[in-house]
């Protein structure tokens, strides 16, 4: 037994050492200095795009148009609020934030999707800015203690591989245009029913959207709402339900490259006309 505990002790000691090395060699440069907090480059920007996957598909294009893309798949307004809280410590008056505002993001479907376990880092682990009732499903109290023990904080794990060995987006490798018409209809119908049909606005999402508006007002940021484009088929379904949307692209509701570029041009145009 003594031998077992001696070996366990040294194994755990080695594990802690491994964590510290891992933090300084891999996690810090990849995650804290680049992937999550791109401190240096953030200071170079005065325009930011904050959205869920709809905006994440614009990655790679922002360099062209001076927009820092802060979007991530499955982010909801609580996540976006945390990001804007972080930006509020960095930005100056009249900096611009392009924010996704649409039925999809206000739907109660969004209450079930969140990256708060990762995005809490943007609040410097200050849980008090989030209402207690919205934290019920998450255990976040221990997160700040795990900064130097990254191998125990599994919420950041996937970023490492994505940063060092990026996987092409979309990861499933299909193109919407490759599908037959009936398959396209099926996909649209499935996603529409799952993510847009709920006309009841989420009180929680609305609350954090309002917090974003208040925060932006307080710091005098220019906040511009964006309705992300969707396919014709998708649009028709939504139009039938009197949502009223603009059709721009060929992918179901995510942006393909050409439409992403076109959207950036519109944003640029909007910006220069200001």
């Amino acid at each position: 037994m003594a031998n077992f505990f001696k070996n366990s002790f040294f194994f755990i000691l080695g594990f802690i050492l491994l964590n510290i090395i891992f933090y300084f060699v891999i996690t810090k440069p990849a995650i804290y200095e680049k992937y999550i907090f791109n401190e240096n480059s953030i200071d170079d920007y005065n325009m930011f795009l904050i959205s869920d996957s709809h905006g994440a598909f614009l990655r790679g294009i922002p360099d062209l148009y001076d927009i820092y893309n802060f979007s991530y798949s499955s982010d909801n307004y609580l996540d976006m609020f945390l990001k804007i809280t972080y930006l509020s410590t960095k930005l100056t008056k009249n900096d611009t934030i392009f924010l996704t505002i649409d039925y999809h993001n206000l739907s109660s479907y969004k209450d079930e999707t969140s990256n708060i376990k990762m995005n809490i880092v943007y609040s410097n682990y200050n849980l008090s800015i989030i209402d207690k009732e919205d934290l019920q499903n998450y255990k976040l109290w221990y997160k700040k203690y795990l900064k130097y023990l990254p191998l125990l904080d599994v919420d950041f794990s996937r970023f490492h591989l994505q940063y060092y060995i990026p996987q092409k987006m979309p990861s499933l490798g299909y193109s919407f245009a490759d599908y037959t018409e009936s398959q396209q209809n099926n996909i649209c119908s499935r996603r529409y029913n799952g993510q847009f049909l709920d006309r009841v606005k989420s009180k929680r999402q609305l609350k954090y959207l309002n917090k974003i508006l208040a925060l932006s007002k307080e710091h005098d940021f220019i906040l511009i709402g964006i309705e992300f484009p969707i396919t014709k088929k998708y649009w028709q379904m939504i139009k039938d339900k009197d949502f009223g949307r603009v059709d721009l692209c060929g992918a179901p509701e995510q942006l393909n490259k050409s439409v992403a570029k076109s959207l950036c041009e519109q944003i640029k145009l909007h910006n220069t006309s200001q």
Partner: peptide
């Protein structure tokens, strides 16, 4: 490390 980097968490 492999579990951490490649696992689905």
């Amino acid at each position: 490390i492999i579990i951490y980097l490649t696992g689905n968490f």
